[in-house]
Design a protein around this nucleic acid. Structure first.
Lengths: 104, 104
DNA sequence: CAAGAACTTGGCCATATCGCCAAATAGTTA
DNA sequence: TAACTATTTGGCGATATGGCCAAGTTCTTG
Protein backbone atom coordinates (compact mmCIF):
# COMPACT_ATOMS: atom_id res chain seq x y z
CA UNK A 1 0.00 0.00 0.00
CA UNK A 2 1.28 3.50 -0.79
CA UNK A 3 1.28 6.33 1.72
CA UNK A 4 -1.56 8.65 0.76
CA UNK A 5 -0.84 11.76 2.80
CA UNK A 6 -4.29 13.31 2.58
CA UNK A 7 -6.09 10.06 3.34
CA UNK A 8 -4.18 9.48 6.55
CA UNK A 9 -4.17 13.12 7.60
CA UNK A 10 -7.97 13.23 7.41
CA UNK A 11 -8.25 10.12 9.55
CA UNK A 12 -5.58 11.17 12.02
CA UNK A 13 -7.46 14.43 12.55
CA UNK A 14 -10.40 12.51 14.00
CA UNK A 15 -8.24 10.29 16.19
CA UNK A 16 -6.37 13.37 17.38
CA UNK A 17 -9.64 14.84 18.58
CA UNK A 18 -10.00 11.82 20.89
CA UNK A 19 -6.40 11.91 22.05
CA UNK A 20 -6.86 13.89 25.25
CA UNK A 21 -7.98 12.61 28.67
CA UNK A 22 -10.65 15.25 29.14
CA UNK A 23 -12.09 14.77 25.67
CA UNK A 24 -12.07 11.01 26.13
CA UNK A 25 -14.02 11.46 29.33
CA UNK A 26 -16.55 13.68 27.58
CA UNK A 27 -17.10 11.05 24.90
CA UNK A 28 -17.73 8.36 27.51
CA UNK A 29 -19.96 10.63 29.54
CA UNK A 30 -21.96 11.84 26.54
CA UNK A 31 -22.46 8.25 25.44
CA UNK A 32 -24.65 7.92 28.52
CA UNK A 33 -26.66 11.07 28.04
CA UNK A 34 -26.37 14.57 26.67
CA UNK A 35 -24.92 17.24 28.96
CA UNK A 36 -24.62 21.00 28.92
CA UNK A 37 -21.24 22.72 29.07
CA UNK A 38 -21.71 23.77 32.69
CA UNK A 39 -22.36 20.20 33.82
CA UNK A 40 -19.25 18.93 32.03
CA UNK A 41 -17.25 21.82 33.47
CA UNK A 42 -18.26 20.89 36.99
CA UNK A 43 -17.19 17.28 36.38
CA UNK A 44 -13.64 18.01 35.26
CA UNK A 45 -12.84 21.11 37.29
CA UNK A 46 -11.29 23.14 34.48
CA UNK A 47 -12.08 26.65 33.36
CA UNK A 48 -15.29 26.77 31.33
CA UNK A 49 -13.43 28.32 28.39
CA UNK A 50 -11.07 25.34 28.33
CA UNK A 51 -14.03 22.94 28.38
CA UNK A 52 -15.74 24.86 25.60
CA UNK A 53 -12.63 24.55 23.44
CA UNK A 54 -12.36 20.80 24.06
CA UNK A 55 -15.99 20.37 23.05
CA UNK A 56 -15.44 22.42 19.95
CA UNK A 57 -12.55 20.15 18.94
CA UNK A 58 -14.82 17.10 19.23
CA UNK A 59 -17.60 18.88 17.41
CA UNK A 60 -15.50 19.99 14.48
CA UNK A 61 -14.15 16.46 14.17
CA UNK A 62 -17.75 15.32 13.71
CA UNK A 63 -17.87 13.33 16.94
CA UNK A 64 -20.35 15.50 18.84
CA UNK A 65 -23.21 17.76 17.90
CA UNK A 66 -24.50 20.65 19.96
CA UNK A 67 -27.97 21.90 20.59
CA UNK A 68 -28.63 25.29 22.10
CA UNK A 69 -31.66 25.45 24.37
CA UNK A 70 -32.22 28.69 26.23
CA UNK A 71 -28.87 29.96 27.32
CA UNK A 72 -27.39 26.49 27.65
CA UNK A 73 -25.67 24.40 25.00
CA UNK A 74 -26.14 20.63 25.17
CA UNK A 75 -23.64 18.30 23.59
CA UNK A 76 -24.41 14.81 22.39
CA UNK A 77 -22.35 11.90 20.99
CA UNK A 78 -23.14 11.13 17.35
CA UNK A 79 -20.58 8.39 16.82
CA UNK A 80 -21.30 5.67 19.40
CA UNK A 81 -19.18 3.25 17.35
CA UNK A 82 -16.19 4.98 18.91
CA UNK A 83 -17.06 3.20 22.12
CA UNK A 84 -16.23 -0.14 20.50
CA UNK A 85 -12.69 1.09 20.29
CA UNK A 86 -12.37 1.52 24.02
CA UNK A 87 -12.45 -2.24 24.60
CA UNK A 88 -9.42 -2.54 22.36
CA UNK A 89 -7.63 0.16 24.35
CA UNK A 90 -8.27 -1.86 27.49
CA UNK A 91 -6.71 -4.89 25.81
CA UNK A 92 -3.63 -2.85 24.93
CA UNK A 93 -3.33 -1.61 28.50
CA UNK A 94 -3.72 -5.06 29.97
CA UNK A 95 -1.25 -6.57 27.53
CA UNK A 96 1.48 -4.24 28.73
CA UNK A 97 1.97 -6.46 31.72
CA UNK A 98 1.21 -9.73 29.92
CA UNK A 99 3.71 -11.71 27.90
CA UNK A 100 1.50 -12.66 24.96
CA UNK A 101 2.27 -11.55 21.43
CA UNK A 102 -1.22 -10.48 20.44
CA UNK A 103 -3.11 -8.19 22.74
CA UNK A 104 -6.44 -8.58 20.98
CA UNK B 1 -19.42 9.06 36.23
CA UNK B 2 -16.57 10.97 37.85
CA UNK B 3 -13.52 12.15 35.99
CA UNK B 4 -10.66 9.85 36.94
CA UNK B 5 -7.61 11.70 35.68
CA UNK B 6 -5.21 8.76 35.67
CA UNK B 7 -7.70 6.41 34.03
CA UNK B 8 -8.30 8.72 31.09
CA UNK B 9 -4.68 9.83 30.78
CA UNK B 10 -3.55 6.21 30.43
CA UNK B 11 -6.11 5.61 27.69
CA UNK B 12 -5.48 8.90 25.91
CA UNK B 13 -1.79 8.02 25.75
CA UNK B 14 -2.57 5.04 23.53
CA UNK B 15 -4.94 6.98 21.30
CA UNK B 16 -2.37 9.74 21.03
CA UNK B 17 0.11 7.25 19.67
CA UNK B 18 -2.30 6.62 16.79
CA UNK B 19 -3.04 10.29 16.21
CA UNK B 20 -0.54 10.98 13.44
CA UNK B 21 -0.94 10.28 9.71
CA UNK B 22 2.39 8.47 9.38
CA UNK B 23 1.80 6.30 12.44
CA UNK B 24 -1.70 5.48 11.24
CA UNK B 25 -0.25 4.38 7.93
CA UNK B 26 2.29 2.18 9.71
CA UNK B 27 -0.46 0.49 11.70
CA UNK B 28 -2.44 -0.26 8.55
CA UNK B 29 0.63 -1.42 6.70
CA UNK B 30 1.88 -3.62 9.54
CA UNK B 31 -1.55 -5.17 9.83
CA UNK B 32 -0.80 -6.73 6.44
CA UNK B 33 2.68 -7.96 7.24
CA UNK B 34 5.71 -7.10 9.31
CA UNK B 35 8.18 -4.63 7.85
CA UNK B 36 11.67 -3.43 8.66
CA UNK B 37 12.40 0.23 9.37
CA UNK B 38 14.07 0.74 6.00
CA UNK B 39 11.01 -0.52 4.10
CA UNK B 40 8.70 1.78 6.04
CA UNK B 41 11.10 4.67 5.55
CA UNK B 42 11.04 4.18 1.79
CA UNK B 43 7.23 4.20 1.83
CA UNK B 44 6.77 7.52 3.59
CA UNK B 45 9.81 9.43 2.35
CA UNK B 46 10.90 10.85 5.71
CA UNK B 47 14.27 10.72 7.38
CA UNK B 48 14.95 7.30 8.89
CA UNK B 49 15.47 8.88 12.31
CA UNK B 50 11.98 10.37 12.14
CA UNK B 51 10.52 7.00 11.17
CA UNK B 52 12.38 5.30 13.98
CA UNK B 53 10.90 7.74 16.47
CA UNK B 54 7.37 7.21 15.17
CA UNK B 55 7.81 3.46 15.51
CA UNK B 56 9.13 3.88 19.01
CA UNK B 57 6.01 5.86 19.96
CA UNK B 58 3.80 3.02 18.73
CA UNK B 59 5.98 0.45 20.43
CA UNK B 60 6.00 2.14 23.81
CA UNK B 61 2.22 2.49 23.59
CA UNK B 62 2.06 -1.29 23.30
CA UNK B 63 0.71 -1.26 19.74
CA UNK B 64 3.75 -2.70 17.96
CA UNK B 65 6.54 -5.06 18.89
CA UNK B 66 9.95 -5.16 17.28
CA UNK B 67 12.20 -8.04 16.42
CA UNK B 68 15.83 -7.51 15.52
CA UNK B 69 17.15 -9.92 12.91
CA UNK B 70 20.66 -9.30 11.68
CA UNK B 71 21.10 -5.59 11.36
CA UNK B 72 17.45 -4.98 10.55
CA UNK B 73 14.58 -4.35 12.96
CA UNK B 74 11.17 -5.70 11.99
CA UNK B 75 8.01 -4.21 13.44
CA UNK B 76 4.73 -6.03 13.80
CA UNK B 77 1.21 -5.05 14.88
CA UNK B 78 0.13 -6.72 18.12
CA UNK B 79 -3.25 -5.07 18.48
CA UNK B 80 -5.24 -5.90 15.34
CA UNK B 81 -8.44 -4.90 17.15
CA UNK B 82 -7.38 -1.34 16.44
CA UNK B 83 -8.35 -1.97 12.83
CA UNK B 84 -12.01 -2.33 13.87
CA UNK B 85 -11.86 1.30 14.84
CA UNK B 86 -10.97 2.43 11.35
CA UNK B 87 -14.44 1.57 10.05
CA UNK B 88 -15.88 3.94 12.62
CA UNK B 89 -13.51 6.68 11.49
CA UNK B 90 -14.80 6.20 7.96
CA UNK B 91 -18.34 6.62 9.23
CA UNK B 92 -17.39 9.87 10.95
CA UNK B 93 -15.75 11.17 7.79
CA UNK B 94 -18.73 10.24 5.62
CA UNK B 95 -21.20 11.74 8.08
CA UNK B 96 -19.54 15.13 7.78
CA UNK B 97 -21.38 15.66 4.54
CA UNK B 98 -24.54 13.79 5.54
CA UNK B 99 -27.42 15.29 7.50
CA UNK B 100 -28.16 12.38 9.84
CA UNK B 101 -27.84 12.66 13.57
CA UNK B 102 -26.01 9.40 14.20
CA UNK B 103 -22.97 8.61 12.12
CA UNK B 104 -22.68 5.01 13.27
C1' DC C 1 40.03 -4.98 12.38
C1' DA C 2 38.01 -1.55 9.00
C1' DA C 3 34.17 -0.16 6.33
C1' DG C 4 29.54 -0.05 5.64
C1' DA C 5 24.50 -0.77 6.41
C1' DA C 6 20.56 -0.38 9.59
C1' DC C 7 18.84 1.79 13.51
C1' DT C 8 18.53 4.71 17.58
C1' DT C 9 19.41 8.77 20.30
C1' DG C 10 20.42 13.66 21.27
C1' DG C 11 19.95 18.26 19.96
C1' DC C 12 17.87 21.99 17.72
C1' DC C 13 14.16 24.78 15.65
C1' DA C 14 9.40 25.60 14.09
C1' DT C 15 4.86 24.80 15.09
C1' DA C 16 0.88 22.96 17.73
C1' DT C 17 -1.52 22.14 22.04
C1' DC C 18 -3.39 23.25 26.53
C1' DG C 19 -4.32 25.86 30.31
C1' DC C 20 -5.87 30.43 32.15
C1' DC C 21 -7.78 35.17 32.05
C1' DA C 22 -10.29 38.82 29.84
C1' DA C 23 -13.60 40.28 26.71
C1' DA C 24 -17.44 39.46 23.55
C1' DT C 25 -21.97 37.25 22.50
C1' DA C 26 -26.60 35.34 23.43
C1' DG C 27 -30.46 34.41 26.17
C1' DT C 28 -33.21 35.23 30.65
C1' DT C 29 -35.22 37.84 34.10
C1' DA C 30 -36.11 41.75 36.98
C1' DT D 1 -33.00 48.47 29.69
C1' DA D 2 -29.90 46.57 33.20
C1' DA D 3 -28.11 42.74 35.48
C1' DC D 4 -27.10 38.00 35.31
C1' DT D 5 -26.04 33.32 33.54
C1' DA D 6 -24.07 30.40 29.97
C1' DT D 7 -21.00 30.00 26.45
C1' DT D 8 -17.51 31.25 22.93
C1' DT D 9 -13.48 33.64 21.24
C1' DG D 10 -8.93 35.97 21.47
C1' DG D 11 -4.59 36.21 23.41
C1' DC D 12 -0.75 34.79 26.17
C1' DG D 13 2.81 31.69 28.18
C1' DA D 14 4.39 27.01 29.12
C1' DT D 15 5.04 22.67 27.30
C1' DA D 16 4.76 18.97 23.74
C1' DT D 17 5.32 17.40 19.01
C1' DG D 18 7.52 16.58 14.63
C1' DG D 19 10.98 17.26 11.41
C1' DC D 20 16.03 17.25 10.24
C1' DC D 21 21.01 16.58 11.00
C1' DA D 22 24.83 14.62 13.47
C1' DA D 23 26.68 11.24 16.32
C1' DG D 24 26.51 6.73 18.56
C1' DT D 25 25.44 1.59 18.49
C1' DT D 26 25.05 -2.98 16.50
C1' DC D 27 25.65 -6.27 13.14
C1' DT D 28 27.69 -7.91 8.69
C1' DT D 29 31.21 -8.40 5.44
C1' DG D 30 35.65 -7.75 3.32
Amino acid sequence: MAYDQKYFTDRARIIKALAHPVRLFFVEELAREERCVCELTAMVGLDISTVSKHLSVLKSAGILIDDKRGNQVFYQLVTPCILNFFGCIEAVINSETAATNYAC
